[in-house]
Design a binder for these strands. Structure first.
Lengths: 223, 223
DNA sequence: CGACTGCTTGAGAGTACTCAAGTACTGTGG
DNA sequence: CCACAGTACTTGAGTACTCTCAAGCAGTCG
């Protein structure tokens, strides 16, 4: 994803004196590491908060519950991603580890005590917030205007792109995917079967896949 | 260093007297006013941008188009609202005036030349971005997990709340509402008819309504 | 091996969509 | 003031896509 034009390019952070330059290094200098096991809650919905988080290892989902149990997964986060950025004094979503994970946690109000590194992290947080807003708009388009087939295709494309490697592992269950895409678990399953039958993706087991026809997948996503 | 010609003299906000305190005042001190007539485009999708906008009078919609013509309205903006905050070097959406409107425009990269007022506006922009992200998450939940009836109820509740008065004017057409809620124009129309039949809202013409049963509407929204 | 959890598949139902026609509101010209 | 045209909105009938409910299959752990 592209960077906001008004924020300094990453090169601007680089000084001749070996300052930390990756977000992981900046965050690592300030945040404290926490580990969570599969399914464990990192924070709760409506919980008061002054924290910001970064995935170091594993994967995290942010979910929101409606009174009657309907659930929506706002997003999935992987190593390097910042999360818990929702505005306001309380978290609008809860966050849970999708597998055994390590997470860095920093108190936002304390950043000013960390001098240069704190300021850098602050800028990183704002940049991440802007990017999250962009992804959110993309996802709204997906939810509002795309078919189940296109939603699942878009999701697989997204996950594959983030992981980068030829074969992609799905850290989440079908139910999580369904709640992210506004579908039912059965429909997600059917669409994956369909995508496979159409030769768009190839699965190995139900949690591991490879993109078989990148061009056709790209068409589905752009559509 | 050259300053954009349309920006007012910097001296205007360095005086110790009468510091602006509302976002409209801060923005007004820095931004330049533009007027747009009904339906006129304020900026285009994928257009390069370094601008931030505030509605002064009228109403604005932010829309995104898919290649095949499917449209999604990302949001509606009213006097006082900041818009055009989508991250990245280009606008992820276009913006159009819903009626004759006046809009303040400021160059983001120029804010640092405006001293205190510029910093304040910068903070306002970040705060607005965070709030927008929160609204975006709410809207994702609406799109992913709510019925057409609940979506329209939620929308009317939202608009009414923003306007505050007993009777609420709808600045947008049914098609805009449909594209915002991920429905068709016919379904929106049917749901409004239904809400009226159920005594939840009362319409006067097709662009003006009043909430008739606030408690039942609140139930539908919270649900 | 059996139990458990997660995933897939099938049949039928329901919500929202598509296509089509009809109604209301607005502005223009006679 | 009314006729007319144009746009926006509503309503109706039939269809399609996704959901619900139910059963079967697969991988995992004791």
């Amino acid at each position: 994803m592209s960077m906001p034009a008004f924020l300094p390019d990453r090169a601007a952070f680089t000084t001749p004196y070996a300052q930390p330059i990756t977000s992981a290094e900046i965050f690592g200098a300030i945040g404290s590491a926490m580990t969570y096991s599969d399914g464990e809650e990192i924070y709760a919905q409506d919980e008061e908060t002054d924290m910001v988080y970064q995935v170091q290892r594993g994967a995290v989902r942010a979910s929101r519950l409606l009174g009657d149990g309907r659930r929506q997964i706002a997003g999935f986060y992987y190593p390097g991603d910042l999360f818990g950025l929702e505005a306001g004094p309380t978290h609008r979503a809860s966050a849970e580890a999708l597998c055994d994970s390590r997470v860095l946690v920093a108190r936002r109000s304390a950043l000013k005590h960390y001098g240069e590194a704190g300021e850098r992290l602050e800028r990183l947080i704002w940049r991440a917030t802007g990017q999250e807003l962009g992804r959110c708009h993309d996802h709204m388009m997906l939810l509002a205007r795309k078919s189940a087939y296109e939603r699942v295709a878009g999701f697989l494309s997204d996950v594959a792109q983030r992981q980068g490697s030829a074969w992609t592992e799905l850290a989440m269950r079908r139910q999580d995917i369904a709640d992210h895409l506004g579908l039912t678990i059965e429909t997600v399953s059917r669409m994956i079967t369909q995508l496979q039958a159409d030769g768009v993706v190839a699965l190995e087991g139900c949690r591991r896949f490879r993109i078989a026809a990148p061009d056709r997948l790209a068409d589905l996503v752009a559509a």
